[in-house]
């Protein structure tokens, strides 16, 4: 009797394994193979349409990209974009989320959340297209800024100046993702039980004190995780920069790593070099993801 029972268990277990086979196959072919392939290819001088077999060159591709000003420029562009985008996004969305939780009207809060989130609904290509028009020399961007600064007729060169074009890409990203991060923070804020605040208020803590002494420390893990998430997102940015360049913006200031991989690998057909760049990007993101896992494990707070 007992043996038969084990038999059923085994049979069931086999089903369980069978259910995972399609996914395992998929991830082997479309995730693990490509990443190992990228590591391998990054050691060769490989071109797409070349008939000669790829030549092994050790770390030559890495030596090449790390001595190439073009690649360093991409690293610079990517990091400038990442820092310039994720810091304002995190600070602003934390502020907005805190303010929204102080609203007593649930309806108003819901409305603001939805309204802030709406830009995230449209695709990033559409977002870039809209802002391309806003940043037109005669467009709304100049009109708004000149209205606020009371400086009629000044052209801010949103898409032409090499500093401004970087700021412009940051604005697009900020605009598109602010609502998304507001919602992340609101979820985090509501996870803090109100009883803690009540106790603090009874003890004579002001709202300002409560925010710095209770909310901030308890929210720290969320802030760290959201920041890393935002950084990971920004490091992968592609669409905005691509669209801006298509729309006539100068390439160099916003030539982020992903764009460089695309140009090197697909347009210039230097697969080996592009793979080396991919691995560099992968390693940067891996360090951040590892940090994220570490922090999410060690900083789990229980209320």
């Amino acid at each position: 009797m007992k043996r038969k029972y084990i038999g059923i268990e085994r049979k069931q277990a086999r089903w369980g394994f069978a259910f995972t086979v399609p996914a395992i196959t998929f991830f082997t072919v479309f995730s693990f193979y490509p990443i190992f392939n990228a590591m391998f290819t990054s050691l060769f001088d490989k071109r797409v349409l070349s008939l000669a077999p790829p030549k092994f060159m050790g770390l030559g591709n890495y030596a090449y990209i790390f001595s190439s000003p073009d690649f360093w420029n991409s690293i610079r562009a990517t990091f400038v974009f990442t820092l310039g985008t994720f810091i304002p996004i995190v600070i602003m969305s934390l502020m907005l989320a805190t303010f929204l939780t102080t609203l007593r009207s649930k309806k108003a809060r819901g409305f603001f959340q939805i309204a802030y989130y709406t830009p995230a609904v449209i695709s990033s290509v559409v977002a870039a297209a809209i802002w391309l028009l806003i940043f037109d020399p005669r467009g709304l961007g100049n009109q708004w800024v000149n209205m606020i600064l009371n400086s009629p007729g000044v052209d801010r060169k949103w898409l032409a100046d090499k500093t401004m074009v970087q700021v412009s890409t940051m604005i697009v990203y900020f605009w598109k993702y602010i609502g998304y991060f507001v919602i992340l923070f609101i979820t985090g804020l509501f996870a803090i039980p109100p009883t803690i605040y009540e106790a603090a208020t009874i003890d004579g803590s002001s709202q300002w004190q409560s925010f710095w002494r209770i909310t901030m420390p308890l929210l720290k893990p969320t802030i760290v995780l959201v920041s890393i998430m935002a950084m990971l997102q920004c490091l992968k940015t592609f669409s905005t920069q691509y669209l801006f360049i298509q729309g006539g913006a100068p390439r160099a200031p916003i030539n982020v790593i992903t764009l460089n991989i695309y140009t090197t690998g697909i347009r210039n057909q230097r697969i080996g070099r592009a793979s080396a760049m991919s691995i560099v990007l992968f390693l940067i993101m891996l360090v951040l993801t590892w940090l994220q896992f570490r922090l999410s494990k060690s900083e789990d707070v229980e209320y």
Binding site: F32, N37, I261
Partner: peptide, 16 residues
């Protein structure tokens, strides 16, 4: 596999 960004494997995927 969540740690592997699509942008890092797009070239090998293209070759596949």
């Amino acid at each position: 596999t969540m740690m592997i960004p699509f942008e890092a494997i797009m070239i090998p995927l293209y070759m596949v």
